[in-house]
Design a protein around this nucleic acid. Structure first.
Lengths: 276, 276
DNA sequence: TTGCTCCTCACGTCACGTGAGGTGGC
DNA sequence: TTGCTCCTCACGTCACGTGAGGTGGC
């Protein structure tokens, strides 16, 4: 019943180029139904159109060939559908992220004049409740989304009130190696009750800091980091130590990322104008 | 004032890898502020952080390096902003298209059982008003969006009513070479008044057709085409001639693409069961 | 027989990443 | 002096596209 087609005919019906079909044959992704042993001519059947169209659809949305291969190798329809839907989910998230990146860049370009103000501050050690973990840069958003409700939830249960805005310490490795220790903390008076399992007492160390307040979504923090880092280095104030952020207005307070206010704190060895 | 940085320090501040920075130097996209003639060590300045961050942002959303180069070569701020925003516009459209592709594939995977019914039909020549042009496959959507309001608008002015649903003829080249003649037509009684400039009288030729009705957005037509083409070829009915579509329910009738009904008509040399 | 289709190499493209093997700076 | 940083090749990767040069089928 299924008729036989030359590679050119099959190409026209599937909108996969002849070169692409030959390449898929070479790598074993999609084999012709038969190959003439004398001439090497490839023959496809109409029954292969479905598969070819699926491949084209998935390639159109950039599924890597390795993943496509494992999808095609999946015989069971439900398992295969689940694998595809899993990819679609990931893809949709990436598209949304890309849209945010486009919009944020548009804001930056159309309003590139926003300067930052930098203040200098020496903090004292602060008792707090904290969650400490080694986190990858790419995982920081979900980790925070999970951690802060946990911390504030624990305070609620203990009927204790925070004595300042929550924040986090980021190990230098976190930025430099893409993975490092992160301490998410909420300041709390030392007399407050015992902390639940999984959370720790932690004393946020005293520090001398250059501080810039970032207004807007977390994805745009890079600009504030860039300007703050530049200022610190230009003034030869840089020292080792953790980068610190304080979340003055965050997802716990508002749903609108444009309203977020984040203090970015860069460790310095002395305040400008003071004795080193 | 601008401090000097090694490539590693600059890499950490900009999140561009050392390899990437060296590559940008090689191709002349972004030069170090200085290079030690003895050791080849590259030196960057804090004043280059802004440019590096812009590059990173634009690369994050896949601007090709050639375009990035022309953006960076643009000295005038407004012209540069316009070039970036132009790219952002194109990118945003592509992202929306990709989202549609993802959703449409999701529908297909979750409801892959939809079969099509194929009927056979012999039509007679039909007088019509038409717009004829050579169109690229990629441009067909805007071309149609422009053409049908024109055609129906002309009918309105002439106080003439169409005598059947609008449609289009697609030359074989349109599908095979990516560009070919397209005739968009609306059937009209031969006695109706003269046609306005830019439009033509056209007689849609008689034909014997295999017809499948596609329900849903135009982006999913490939599946109906695949199933219809497969059926026609399997039955050895294929012949040369234009592919034809009739728009029974289209953007002129509803805003919801899920409601669109399109007859896809494949030319055949005789109806199955009849004498060839 | 003409001309269209199909074939197989070999190499190019894009934007880097991955080592190898070696030197420089603090 | 140690070990971390930086250097330059050369080659790899991903998913094909672009010819060159030649054969096959109708």
């Amino acid at each position: 019943m299924a008729a036989s087609l030359s590679i050119g005919e099959f190409s026209r019906l599937t909108h996969l180029s002849v070169k692409t079909l030959r390449y898929y044959h070479d790598i074993g992704l999609m084999l012709p139904a038969s190959v003439d042993p004398a001439t090497g001519y490839r023959r496809y059947t109409t029954g292969q159109i479905d598969t070819a169209l699926l491949i084209r659809r998935l390639r159109d949305i950039d599924m890597p060939l390795a993943e496509l291969r494992s999808v095609l190798d999946t015989a069971d329809d439900n398992t295969r559908a689940a694998a595809i839907v899993g990819y679609l989910d990931r893809m949709e998230r990436r598209l949304v992220d890309a849209q945010h990146a486009v919009r944020s860049l548009r804001d930056l370009v159309l309003d590139g004049t926003r300067a930052i103000t930098i203040e200098y501050r020496t903090t004292i050690a602060t008792p707090s409740i904290a969650r400490i973990a080694v986190v990858q840069r790419d995982d920081i958003t979900p980790w925070c989304a999970e951690t802060y409700p946990l911390l504030y939830g624990a305070l609620g249960l203990a009927q204790a009130a925070p004595i300042g805005p929550g924040g986090a310490l980021y190990d230098a490795d976190f930025f430099e190696a893409g993975e490092g220790q992160v301490v998410a903390f909420v300041p709390l008076s030392a007399e407050a009750q015992a902390v639940p399992a999984g959370l720790d007492r932690f004393e946020v160390p005293a520090a001398t800091l250059a501080v810039a307040t970032h207004v807007g979504p977390f994805e745009e923090l890079d600009r504030t980091y860039g300007l703050l880092g530049r200022s610190v280095i230009d003034r030869s104030l840089a020292t080792t130590g953790s980068i610190r952020e304080y979340y003055l207005m965050s997802p716990g307070d508002t749903d609108d990322p444009a309203q977020f206010r984040t203090e970015v704190c860069w460790p310095i060895h002395h305040q400008p104008g003071e004795e080193p």
